[in-house]
Design a protein around this nucleic acid. Structure first.
Lengths: 153, 153
DNA sequence: TATGGGGCTTCCCATGATGGGAAGGTCAAG
DNA sequence: CTTGACCTTCCCATCATGGGAAGCCCCATA
């Protein structure tokens, strides 16, 4: 089947299928004589595996590992489990961080009259609050150190 | 003071100060005769406002609005409050989504023996689970529709 | 058989916030 | 006056994703 069909059946856009191929996440597709990529059901299967993993928030590099385990029938289920557990840990950290931000904002919102007058404790807080140690500074991990979350809804 | 001092005092990197200037978030800095950017205490103040807002997860475009309100002494505190409340809503959505992912993974992890054998319900789930409506498809909002969260720690 | 439309190919560009690094000018302390 | 720290601009990279152009390919229908 062509890339369009593989896309429709797997839920991965044609653009992304080519991208995954190009970056080595998936092997080079077979080609027809005229150059069209040609996919088998097993490829769709793999693409779905990827899609589902993305939906659960795994990064591309984590999916690389998952795919390796998936294909390796000599795998230890403990290795898969460890990957999932690391992912959960990561999610918990992010949740905590978002929760902290929400709580702070909640406190500020509660203290704001929210009327026609200009006085606003929210602005006052933003204006004067100190900026103690907070990830923004000395970010030695470079940009996008797999920190951001893909939240597509 | 020079950009380095403004950076140290505000907690915003020099790179980002220039970027904010370039993108119009902050006004063009004053310059010395030799071309060095020159900052006053009030500028540092503004940069801190931005840093603090970023720490609370506001996007650049939201910060643009916050800065406008901050500078506008005729503002209605209700407008500020509305911005903060929208931000909280957004955070709650993201938290829910992350929580859902974590819960699903937790269930899978619990069902996996995690031993030397290859059988693994986690892989099995990734392999076979359907891909019903989930943001990945028909993403008409384009890439980065202000969906991702800045979590720097 | 010719034509048209839709699907495929590659290639380049943009996103958003951030840092890296090069090439070259400036400044203050020694 | 030299040296080293700091400043300037400019370009590049990230990561996953889509947009769009230019040019083939393939099938169905006239």
């Amino acid at each position: 089947m062509n890339i369009g069909d593989a896309s429709a059946r797997s839920g991965v856009s044609a653009k992304m299928i080519r991208y995954y191929e190009q970056t080595g996440l998936i092997p080079l597709a077979a080609r027809t004589t005229s150059g069209y990529r040609n996919y088998a059901d097993s490829d769709v299967h793999m693409l779905r595996f990827i899609a589902r993993s993305r939906d659960l928030g795994f990064s591309i590099s984590e999916i690389t590992d998952l795919l390796d385990l998936w294909r390796n029938t000599d795998r230890r289920s403990a290795d898969v489990k460890a990957l999932a557990q690391a992912r959960i840990q990561d999610l918990r950290h992010k949740i905590t961080h978002l929760q902290d931000m929400a709580d702070t904002l909640e406190t500020l919102v509660r203290s704001c009259a929210g009327d026609e007058r200009p006085d606003c404790p929210i602005l006052h807080n933003l204006e004067t609050e100190a900026f103690p140690a907070s990830g923004r500074r000395s970010n030695h991990a470079g940009p996008h150190a797999n920190i951001n979350e893909r939240i597509t809804s």
